[in-house]
Design a protein around this nucleic acid. Structure first.
Lengths: 236, 236
DNA sequence: CGTTGATATTTGTTACAACAAAAATCACAA
DNA sequence: TTGTGATTTTTGTTGTAACAAATATCAACG
């Protein structure tokens, strides 16, 4: 655990539902935001105390994230935030290309004007966030942009798998925002995607989405190599 | 639970490792084999008793399978073996086409003669099993055939996701063996795949694998519709 | 200064019990 | 027979404690 994990007893008290879900969502959001440095250990009792839940819900939340691949076991009794090797990042990127390409191509024909308006609105927000160097906001709306497209295909199981892939790479963004986002990443690809949607051109849409994913991979790779000059990011 | 779940205290006693893992593997193998009828309820205490473990490991095993999508929640307190709707089956098939196509195309160039021999051997076993109507054995070796190809690409994360997709459709095979396997399903596609590997032709290999997946989907659909004439298999 | 080995601490695992909520049962009425 | 409502049973959730195993600590030694 690290400095970012402040006791959130207040939030927990107003949370309706299972404590396991509360702990899971709290941890997952932190991971997606890159709040943890790769390698950070997450012991049950610490997670339990930080989020003001018993050890059973804490254990359950951690286990779930391990099953989803968002956390990994570094020993028989140690769960850590994963270091993503370049190989692993590449694999996940290949899966993203295949599945997000599929989702966007499938959804293209069902697009409506309100969706296109929403995408334009989101793209404006992203640009503004980048201008003001609010990288976390930009990343959040970037995700919303993508999933607004993917939701068009109405394939919930596919969506769930894609969401899982995003979660897995999320933890790699720790402290990489500036380098990652510096060059207005994605703006051009996003506009291409919107144009493809306007024209109901599934092939163009898929191409734009794939370009965006490849672009993101290159940028993330570059930013990571800048921080871990050894070559590959160690671990897995 | 049903007739197939006999107390397996003996196996549990000789099992080294966490009881959660023991319970998980036991349940998962039953699911993959289609041992449960869709809709079967799996209460914690029952699973615990059947596999001779406490309720904590049983709960953990069930939760893990729910996260993996192999079991689903039918109510706030009820976990069941999922009914697979035609829509869900179609979605998973689309993902399989994308990911297993990716894996086979990537692995094609690294194939060796020993792998090809293994595939020929497996295909012989499959044919023999079908001759003798040992459908479960045929299905087992069919899986081994596919994953022998997929392992060639050396992408463990991709493999894990594919394995998960197989697990999710596994439970739909309950009592469908005869209809599903009757027409020597897959023989031709498998031979095409082997020939493509011999020629190191990635495109042909991908095509053969995709054909096999589509064929399986059609057969499963036909067999399921035969049993649930209403149209779609209800639930999710 | 680095290694090794023993000791102390931390940590995951599991069983269990109490509680609240959901699901099943059953009787009764339409 | 069917729907409905109350009652009984089942079931998931959570906290806790005991245990064993792994990890961290630290001192002695090369």
């Amino acid at each position: 655990m690290n400095e970012d994990t402040t006791k959130s007893e207040a939030k927990r008290e107003e949370f309706a539902g299972r404590l396991s879900d509360f702990a899971y969502e709290a941890l997952r959001d932190q991971l997606a935001r890159g709040a943890f440095k790769p390698g950070t250990k997450l012991p049950i009792r610490t997670v339990a105390e930080v989020h003001s839940v018993g050890s059973t819900p804490a254990r359950e939340a951690i286990n779930r994230l391990v099953v989803e691949g968002a956390l990994v076991m570094a020993g028989p009794k140690t769960v850590i935030v994963p270091f993503l090797t370049l190989e692993a990042l590449y694999e996940i990127t290949q899966m993203r290309l295949a599945l997000e390409g599929l989702a966007s191509a499938r959804g293209c024909r069902t697009v409506t004007d309100v969706t296109i308006s929403k995408l334009l609105f989101l793209q404006d927000k992203i640009s503004l966030s980048l201008d003001e160097k609010r990288y976390a906001d930009a990343l959040y709306d970037n995700k919303e942009f993508h999933f607004t497209i993917y939701r068009l295909c109405a394939m919930p199981h596919l969506l769930a798998v894609i969401e899982n892939l995003w979660l897995r790479v999320g933890s790699s963004f720790h402290d990489l925002y500036p380098e990652f986002a510096e060059q207005r990443y994605g703006v051009h690809n996003h506009m291409m995607a919107i144009e493809a949607l306007v024209e109901r051109d599934a092939d163009s849409l898929r191409a734009a989405v794939e370009n965006d994913i490849r672009d993101g991979f290159r940028r993330l790779k570059k930013a990571a190599l800048l921080r871990y000059p050894g070559g590959a990011i160690p671990g897995s």
